[in-house]
């Protein structure tokens, strides 16, 4: 039985390795960290009408009010499975993926890793990220957001089974939200 501290350490190390693979453009190796049944969702984020009846309550300005996720009848920015991620990874190694030829320079900083629920086989984890993005012939950009993950414990390691990416934009002014966050 491992301690909470050991588990926290192991998950942080997993995320650092994941970030290193992505920043190092080793996307095929990154894909091996992903369960083939993964659900990868990025809700859309709207500027919501504040409900007067909720004044005085946290619910009035809850972040959930701003999200169009995969459960509702809005339209998330991304709702993907393994096949979509596979296409994205495959695209990265083609000559004619012109938006990434030459490729962007990225740097991911992962923090605020918080274990929400630890089961025997899976763990729910929340983490924050900042991603610096610099593409030739363009401006530099900062992406900021949160990831709500479900990680599976397999053979002493982890696989990402579910990832919800909450972006912090009010207006999208970055070149693409099609990166792997």
């Amino acid at each position: 039985m491992i301690s909470d501290i050991e588990r926290q350490y192991a998950i942080e190390q997993f995320y650092y390795r994941e970030a290193r693979l992505l920043d190092g453009r080793q996307y095929q190796q990154w894909l091996s960290l992903v369960s083939e049944s993964i659900r990868y969702v990025m809700p859309a984020r709207v500027n919501a009408l504040v409900n007067n009846r909720q004044r005085g309550e946290e619910a009035m300005i809850a972040i959930d009010n701003e999200l169009e996720g995969s459960d509702g009848l809005g339209c998330p920015i991304r709702e993907e499975g393994y096949a979509h991620l596979f296409v994205r990874v495959d695209r990265a190694y083609k000559m004619n993926s012109w938006a990434d030829n030459p490729p962007a320079r990225t740097r991911r900083i992962i923090g605020n890793v918080e274990l929400l629920e630890c089961g025997d086989e899976s763990i729910r984890v929340r983490s924050n990220f900042h991603l610096f993005f610099s593409r030739p012939g363009s401006d530099n950009f900062i992406y900021s957001g949160q990831r709500n993950d479900q990680l599976l414990m397999i053979d002493g390691g982890f696989k990402i089974a579910d990832r919800e990416v909450i972006m912090d934009y009010a207006n999208i002014d970055v070149p693409t939200l099609g990166l792997i966050f």
């Binding site: 990025m42 920015i77 979509h84 296409v87 994205r88 012109w98 938006a99 070149p175 693409t176 099609g178």
Partner: peptide, 11 residues
């Protein structure tokens, strides 16, 4: 904004 094709278009 997250589309696989459209990232090429906007670029």
């Amino acid at each position: 904004p997250g589309g696989i094709l459209e990232q090429e278009d906007s670029e």
